[in-house]
């Protein structure tokens, strides 16, 4: 690999690993798989550096991550069907992340409430269907413009708008229900 490709990779991809990881974590619901996905995405990005036409590197890299997450989700679904695993991924997530934050006496009440809020929000985000979740994360965490979200997700602008509105409606509903 040339020095040119290495320089590009350091400049265009390395600074985006954290946000790529968080996207993968939210889409797959799994910390370990998110790590694998970001490693694979980095490898692919690195191989493409020689010929990459420098434009919107951020959207380009996030698209690779997003597509790998979808492949991973499909593979997971097939595996689950094959071994008749009946555990819902949302439940698994709750089992992985929920319930472990037990009350410690020296935690101030307000902090505890904030923490519980975050956990509750995490659960309802994880429970969203992936097509809504993807748009929501790209907007609320990555703060991308609608047209960038449309490009990354490969859907028209109107679909981005309707999915985002639906995702937010659904979250508000779930949050109310879980009270």
């Amino acid at each position: 690999m040339s020095a040119f490709a290495k320089e590009r990779f350091s400049r265009l991809v390395l600074p985006r690993l954290d946000e790529a990881y968080r996207l993968a974590r939210w889409l797959t619901g799994s910390a370990a798989d998110a790590e694998d996905i970001v490693q694979e995405a980095s490898l692919r990005a690195y191989r493409a550096m020689e010929t990459f036409v420098e434009e919107n590197a951020r959207a380009w890299f996030l698209t690779i991550v997003r597509n790998l997450c979808y492949s991973w989700l499909q593979k997971r679904k097939a595996e689950r069907l094959a071994i008749k695993e009946d555990k819902d991924p949302a439940d698994e997530q709750v089992m992985e992340t929920g319930g472990v934050h037990t009350h410690t006496p020296d935690t101030p009440e307000s902090l505890l409430i904030a923490k519980q809020e975050t956990m509750r929000l995490t659960r309802v985000i994880d429970a969203l269907p992936v097509d809504l979740k993807e748009i929501l994360v790209l907007r609320e965490y990555h703060a991308l413009a609608y047209r960038d979200i449309a490009a990354i997700s490969g859907v028209p602008l109107g679909t981005v708008m309707s999915r985002l509105a639906r995702a937010r409606q659904r979250l508000m509903q779930l949050l109310e229900d879980s009270h």
């Binding site: 690999m1 290495k6 990779f9 350091s10 390395l14 690993l17 954290d18 990881y21 968080r22 974590r25 939210w26 910390a31 790590e35 970001v38 490693q39 980095s42 490898l43 690195y46 809020e117 975050t118 929000l121 995490t122 985000i125 929501l136 994360v137 609320e140 965490y141 703060a143 937010r168 979250l171 508000m172």
Partner: peptide, 29 residues
Amino acid sequence: SLSRSLHSTLADVPVPDGLRADILHDLGL
């Protein structure tokens, strides 16, 4: 208000310590 809480929750996911080093290592960088 939903957007504000979402942003902090979504960004709160800790990134594994070794991720960057692992990737650099894998690529021989």
